[in-house]
Design a protein around this nucleic acid. Structure first.
Lengths: 191, 191
DNA sequence: TTGCCTTGTGCGTTATAACGTACATATGAT
DNA sequence: ATCATATGTACGTTATAACGCACAAGGCAA
């Protein structure tokens, strides 16, 4: 798998935006000559300029980076959300995968129902995406209200809780068990 | 959002690996002088060399890139889903977090609209959770139909596509960039 | 101590990224 | 048709990324 090619999607992104090279040059601070060369693969930009471009487009860097195909894996699993009987209505959407260190639940709360969760291990991050209704999340003694379509990401190593509004609430709950936090969250105090 | 600092985590990654500059130079094909300059911020590498480094470490490219702007999520970080223009309606629900190696998008397709996606880097896993409508996902020349409330998890290192039904579709799209743990299990006393 | 190896950094050269300008073609208006 | 504006590309110059080599500092062994 050594012939994995690095490809840049600048041409696609710009095509989608409908902007000209000159416009993008103004927008990003990168000369249009350079932009053209990057699009045609005649130049391999530095991350600094790639960053300028991403910023100009207000896109994450990952939106500009792509790679050619490598090996193919064929495992596809359609999950039919196994129900979990308990105090609250919980279904497993994506079961825990050690490779990802992540799992996703579908939680349904009846009107005004609340649920408290103790602190998880350090390094556990939760993400909540509200599907319907109004959900309030207790974090550091403060209730954060979330509407349908809104999301919240927080470190789950402290006690937290969920509370539904008057019409109940349904939400997705992703748990991330980050395997190598110290590496990626290390603070650069030098320099 | 102008606190945009692009930071590279090469120093942290290499420190975690316990490898010397020379070893990394052999491993990646990038001269150790260059590696040193990159670590000290004296040089802004091209994506080509950054790619070589990532490949040498068997890490996703994103593991080497960080933004100082991304501070850890405290209690007030409710994401308001930033839309970005393109061929399809995509909102960012949870932006990419290097610590998690994950990001989540909210995608909306109009009736019968389809969207093709090229292969991502190896180790990238996608999860799709259908919020409304009917969504079909192309994987290995086969269309997998998903109803609202159903989820699909698959390796995204091959081209794949999405297609909405007659009434359109909305779904969450989670991207997981595996944080290859083998790096940390590496025997640092070898040789 | 004296080698001997490895660590990371400094230096000089080459390759090339990035720039500004100029150019050829295209689209549009009068 | 001509003029005008905008597109993307080609050229020449400068800035700098990337290289190979050499150097100084820090082990470790005999």
């Amino acid at each position: 798998m050594e012939s994995d090619e690095l490809t840049l999607k600048l041409r696609d992104v710009r095509a989608a935006s409908g902007l000209s090279l000159s416009k993008v040059a103004d927008l990003t601070g990168v000369s249009k000559a350079m932009l053209g060369q990057i699009e045609r693969g005649e130049s391999s930009p530095t991350i600094a300029t790639l960053w300028k471009i991403a910023k100009g487009f207000q896109l994450p860097l990952s939106a500009l980076i792509g790679t050619a195909a490598m090996r193919d894996t064929t495992d596809t699993d359609v999950f039919s959300t196994v129900t979990f009987p308990g105090s609250i209505e919980v279904k497993i959407v994506f079961p825990f995968d050690p490779a990802l260190g992540a799992e996703t639940f579908h939680v349904e709360l009846s009107p005004n129902q609340s649920h408290k969760s103790p602190a998880h291990a350090a390094g556990v991050t939760e993400e909540v995406f509200v599907l319907s209704g109004v959900l309030e999340i207790l974090r550091n003694d403060k209730w954060v209200p979330l509407q349908a379509g809104q999301g919240l990401r927080f470190a789950a190593d402290v006690p937290h809780g969920y509370r539904a509004g008057d019409r109940g609430a349904a939400f997705l709950n992703m748990h991330h068990y980050s395997q190598s936090t110290e590496l990626f969250e290390q603070d650069r105090t030098s320099q």
